[in-house]
Design a protein around this nucleic acid. Structure first.
Lengths: 227, 227
DNA sequence: CTAGAATTTAAACGAACGTTTGAATGAGGG
DNA sequence: CCCTCATTCAAACGTTCGTTTAAATTCTAG
């Protein structure tokens, strides 16, 4: 009845599959990564993925979930903390931005695996697979909802539609900055492999995001002051 | 010896393949789109792709090249025009941004095929396939080089590295905004299918990009004034 | 009209895919 | 000790992949 027989080995198998899969997904994409590549790199049997996860599709979601769930939880906590610190006052926009994106950048600059995952995540946003899209939507919906509300309280004069657009733009700039940084490499010589590339990018990205958020609204009903 | 025998039909076959492939690549991605799906949708024989293009890989590049080459040519021309209009003076940053991104947004809001292509292009930036990455690099290198130089002249106090970072961020925000707009849909109800979605996004995106470009530098050597 | 090149067609190729199977392996509890 | 059950393993499943082949067809040039 007890599940924990060869437990250490069984858990090890699972996590080795997840690790190998994540690295290969970043390098080649979901579709182009085969079960044989994954199990080969992980040093486990071909059938292990189907035994432990059921299918490749579930494995993909599980690779994402392993880091995305804690990341989004931290985003929630960061906003909680900011709201607690602000007391009665609405949280200042730049603190909201910081709560959301610092969580990501912490993960991206913490470990090699974290950086790898953030690359994968950025790429996954443009992934057409319905299964992946559906998972991302359900995972992000409550987080985006909370942050949208926070922005709405912080910027009562800005229409919610505008806030969502800017959130969308900020998310895009960050995703692309993290995941597509090797396209930048072609042009600048900056390589993501350098361990401090993420650290050097971080203040620049935050400054850029805040600048975009504070930009005057195009239509021009007065809401250009956001900090 | 003359190639133009069944020319109309032969050209038609080629372009029908390109059209069908583009639509399918957007919907399912490169890897998940099979030759049989493409030739089926195009209404041509399975062997037609290999006959006319040589391989699936070449077809992918050709689909991209068909619209990307004219797009980048237009970006060059737009910068030429801006520089001509500025005369001796350096071109103002917001005009450089406009030259680059208006070309993209024109394409994206012009026709359904143009919008489709811009979606594909944004997604392609995070494509791991070496063949695709290499093509994108060679296609973009001269354009980015020209724009980088223009920005350097316009913002002589800003280090070139900072300029490249911001260009990278702007490119990311736009790519993501165009190609990942259906992830926004989950949160806002805005659908890319609405013919005017791109038009409504355009001024908002341009405002956001300029705001990001004008944001103060994080390190803080004085170069926060850019327009 | 005819010779011949260009294109289309149906069929097949070997390879690789995700998944399934049933037997072997190994450890824990009665 | 042996039965049990979770896990591993090698092998094979049927399917689909991109590509190739060779004959049929279409069109043009002479």
């Amino acid at each position: 009845m007890d599940v924990r027989r060869t437990s250490l080995t069984a858990h090890e198998t699972r996590s080795r599959i997840l690790d190998a899969a994540q690295a290969l997904f970043v390098a080649h994409g979901f579709e182009a990564t085969s079960m044989r590549m994954i199990t080969g790199d992980a040093g486990v049997n071909l059938a292990a993925v189907n035994y432990h996860f059921g299918s490749k599709d579930v494995l993909v979601r599980e690779v994402l979930k392993r880091h995305l769930q804690p990341l989004n939880a931290q985003r929630m906590q960061a906003l909680d903390a900011a709201e607690a610190a602000a007391g009665e006052q609405p949280v200042k926009p730049h603190r909201i931005v910081d709560a959301f994106f610092s969580s990501s950048l912490d993960l991206a600059s913490g470990s090699a695996a974290g950086r790898e995952f953030m690359q994968l995540l950025g790429r996954t946003f443009t992934e057409p697979s319905p299964s992946v899209r559906e998972y991302l939507a359900t995972e992000y919906a409550p987080v985006i909802g909370r942050y949208r509300d926070a922005f709405c309280r912080a910027l009562p004069t800005v229409p919610v539609e505008e806030i969502l657009w800017r959130l969308h733009f900020m998310l895009g700039a960050m995703s692309y900055a993290v995941s597509g940084i090797d396209s930048l490499q072609v042009l600048t010589g900056v390589r993501i492999d350098e361990p401090d590339a993420m650290q050097r990018m971080r203040p620049r990205l935050m400054s850029f995001l805040l600048g975009g958020l504070r930009a005057p609204l195009p239509a021009g009903d007065g809401a250009d002051e956001t900090t």
